[in-house]
Design a protein around this nucleic acid. Structure first.
Lengths: 104, 104
DNA sequence: CTTGACACCTAGCGTTGCTAGGTATAGCGT
DNA sequence: ACGCTATACCTAGCAACGCTAGGTGTCAAG
């Protein structure tokens, strides 16, 4: 998976993972790998900054929790995040269709 | 269409347009717009550098021609370009599937 | 008592699409 | 004649963003 391909789509992927249920960063990474069947095996240096940015934009909110001695920052979608996710989904659809049309 | 979405996919799109028949830069831009039903309305400052880069990488070859007083640089796919296009198509497929899987 | 998984973080890099500016010809309307 | 639009090319520098590479610390297993 080339790195550049992901650009501009990662936000939607992260939001989509957090839509089902709140999760901490490390779990988001695992979920992305799991759901994509290994295609998205993202380094922490990619995902953590995204979470911070999305929170700064008000699409996520976070709170700290400690599980078996380890600190986790748990993120969940805000109302605005839900709206943005819906929009991003639509954008993905039209983008994918457009690419498909040109490649076909 | 957000700008960042295109990143990492533009090469494949340009190669795909030139696969059918050789074309000059301006025509590539028009083809992209046409085939994508208006979704890819790319500025010249985006496409021309890509053509130069693809030629530098040996995926395209170009030659000048003059049509009704206007100079055109006509690009066509090299053998290597064909191979790369095929590979990019496959990559697009798995990428699109992976995104779909996560978003769904 | 070291190794690996878990869990977080950030400075700086590299790629790449876009903005904004430039040059030049052809054809149209006024 | 003159301007305007479409055609056709080009490039310097900007901005966005995923990744590299480094850092901190806890816990369980061997």
């Amino acid at each position: 998976m080339r790195a550049e391909s992901l650009k501009g789509h990662l936000d939607a992927l992260v939001l989509a993972v957090l839509k089902d249920e709140p999760a901490h960063g490390y779990a988001v990474i695992e979920q992305l790998k799991l759901r994509s069947d290994g295609a998205f095996d993202l380094p922490e240096g990619t995902v953590y900054p995204v979470l911070h940015r999305l929170e700064a934009e008000g699409l996520l909110s976070s709170s700290w929790s400690t599980v078996s001695g380890r600190k986790r920052r748990v993120y969940k979608l805000t109302r605005r995040g839900q709206g943005t996710l819906a929009r991003q989904r639509d954008e993905w659809k039209s983008f994918a269709n457009a690419v498909q049309a040109v490649l076909a």
